[in-house]
Write a protein that binds this DNA or RNA. Structure first.
Lengths: 141, 141
DNA sequence: AATATATAGTTGACTTTATCAACTATATGC
DNA sequence: GCATATAGTTGATAAAGTCAACTATATATT
């Protein structure tokens, strides 16, 4: 294994660790919101006023479409999210937050950004560098 | 929400995105090894010659001990891992890799390093910075 | 236009992941 | 010795995840 591979390996291992460590912090907020880590993430991905097709969600989560059906079922039954048929393509259903969902999402974000988050260990500089690197990685625009 | 919170939020969102994107690459290898993402991670955490108490595993994964029982059951039934009573404390069971498990782990690491292509988008400098920042995040060392 | 093919989402059967409460066995503190 | 804490298992249960089969729309080809 060459040097670059080692870095890649290491980064992956650290990400996994981060993910699970982060998960450990969620229950503290989760007790309040009663959301699983994945539900948090889904809520996070649906930005207010920016409806998200279910297929895109499956894509982002790298999971089967039928799994998304279940995830959305549970969120919808709690009144956080709603499905709407797309006017452009009637096969597509887009997800949008209900007012309750948007409120919960906002509270959730505040919590996550708050001191329960290990991210606060980083300096502002580091946080910005991290964001830049991750943006390059995820190839967002 | 202030500026620092926004950065933290953004970083978190990107980390989660990256994590799931990365996870999407696993099944490709998983098809070969038939390991779930979590099983991969557990195998990753048990370093050869460095037996791991089950309680520490539960700790690292931030999950209930009974969950670890199941995870280890499945890995053990496939001959990748074995439980051994600790000589110091007879309540404790330490996990160690079987030769098969060690071999699989090595192949897995090679695969993951090869497949985590997005990392190759980064310069070597950026890769190292990322590793450093992630280390600070998970508070290793 | 008619037919073929591809895509979005759901359903049903099934496995894995995860939690909680209750239990066994061992350690540790007084 | 007795109380209390800790490590791990078991059983019940729910959520997360996959796959194959299905419905309904879209799009592409002839």
């Amino acid at each position: 294994m060459n040097r670059a591979d080692q870095d890649a390996c290491r980064a992956w291992q650290l990400l996994m660790k981060f993910f699970f460590a982060q998960r450990g912090h969620l229950p503290a907020s989760g007790a309040e919101f009663d959301l699983s880590p994945i539900q948090c993430h889904v809520l996070h991905l649906i930005e207010p006023g920016r409806p998200l097709p279910m297929s895109r969600l499956a894509d982002t989560l790298s999971c089967d479409a039928s799994n998304v059906t279940g995830l959305v079922d549970r969120l919808e039954s709690r009144g956080l999210v709603r499905r709407r048929p797309s006017p452009r393509d009637r096969r597509v259903k887009v997800l949008h937050l209900t007012p309750t969902g948007a409120r919960l999402r906002a509270r959730l974000l505040r919590q996550m950004a708050g001191r329960s988050l290990p991210l606060s260990r980083l300096s502002l500089d580091q946080q910005r560098t991290l964001v830049k690197i991750l943006e390059a990685l995820v190839d967002e625009k």
